[in-house]
């Protein structure tokens, strides 16, 4: 009933309405001071002048952004050309993240679908199996992956031992190794939203399609996929976004040739070669890109929700 919807529903209730501000104060304080304020401070730093041994000089400057986008020669006196170095690194990050997302989708979608169609009782266990590795330290996972894929590693040993190949396949320090590492890092983010969507999907729609002579794969493409699209998109975003800014997989599995944004940023804050404003600017550009992607995604999701039923 109407009154029930306004008060008795389980989503939000107002039992502790009076204490609300006090209850929220600690989280506001901690997150405001140690997450939000730092991000604002980073924005400020990106517009300051670099100090040669790390840190900044408090003089406003556009040098960081200028360095990112324009090449003015060794002494800064030549006419500005587009600087491709960093744009290429960003582009490579996007490309690598995209490839990792695609790989996660190709493996993750059937997996999520398979799990969601298991008997209800065993589903949580399957989900648990998929998520366990995620909770193992990312560093350890990435190192393990590197160990497995090395030229003299167990995978190549196994393949040579079985006679499938004569000489080791070089996987480490290739783009593919990075994609595999990213896939390994973020796979549950692909599987879980798709799983949730398939679990909510009403399979009598599939039955209706089959009843109307649709072959199974057509049913999957024309009926199931449109219904679970929000879950698929959510999964893609959740893999793509962290992949783009990842540091460990490209650093350990990709080597120097396969530099990504994460390493570029990290380098600016290590040792004496660093350039803090430039690192802050690169971080701001990354953050802006991520927020734009999330914003478009949120728009679409809310549109889908409003127009859905």
């Amino acid at each position: 009933m109407a009154a029930g919807a306004a008060s008795g529903g389980s989503a939000t209730t107002d039992t502790y309405k009076e204490a609300r501000n006090w209850l929220l104060l600690p989280s506001w304080a901690v997150l405001g001071i140690f997450v939000l304020a730092p991000v604002c401070m980073m924005l400020v730093y990106s517009f300051l002048t670099k100090e040669f041994r790390g840190g900044v000089i408090w003089e406003p400057s556009l040098a960081a952004y200028d360095q990112f986008f324009f090449d003015r020669g060794l002494f800064g006196d030549e006419p500005a050309k587009i600087e491709w170095t960093y744009i290429t690194i960003f582009w490579r990050s996007i490309w690598q993240a995209g490839a990792a997302t695609l790989l996660s989708l190709v493996i993750g979608f059937p997996t999520a679908y398979f799990i969601a169609t298991r008997p209800e009782r065993v589903r949580p266990f399957w989900v648990f199996l998929i998520t366990i590795p995620y909770w193992v330290n990312l560093l350890i996972r990435t190192v393990s992956m590197k160990f497995l894929l090395r030229d003299q590693g167990p995978l190549n040993d196994f393949l040579i031992g079985t006679g499938l190949i004569d000489s080791p396949i070089h996987i480490v320090n290739t783009n593919f190794a990075v994609q595999l590492g990213l896939f390994y890092s973020y796979l549950p983010f692909m599987v879980l939203p798709i799983y949730a969507a398939v679990e909510r999907y009403n399979f009598s729609l599939s039955e209706a399609a089959a009843d109307l002579y649709a072959p199974k794969w057509v049913t999957l493409r024309r009926i199931v996929l449109p219904a679970i699209k929000p879950g698929v998109i959510a999964g893609c975003i959740l893999v793509f976004v962290p992949s783009m800014g990842s540091f460990l997989a490209p650093d350990l599995l990709g080597g120097a040739k396969n530099f990504m944004i994460g390493s570029l940023i990290e380098e600016q804050f290590k040792g004496n070669a660093g350039n803090w404003p430039f690192g802050a600017a690169a971080s701001m550009i990354l953050l802006t890109m991520v927020l734009i992607i999330l914003l478009i995604f949120a728009r679409q999701q809310s549109k889908a929700e409003n127009g859905g039923s």
């Binding site: 997450v35 939000l36 730092p38 401070m41 980073m42 800014g245 990842s246 944004i261 953050l287 991520v290």
Partner: peptide, 17 residues
């Protein structure tokens, strides 16, 4: 927020802060 902001960005921001 910490889930939306890429971890490396949070790291840089915290260091700068």
């Amino acid at each position: 927020l910490p889930l939306m902001v890429p971890e490396i960005v949070t790291a840089v921001a915290t260091l700068i802060f």
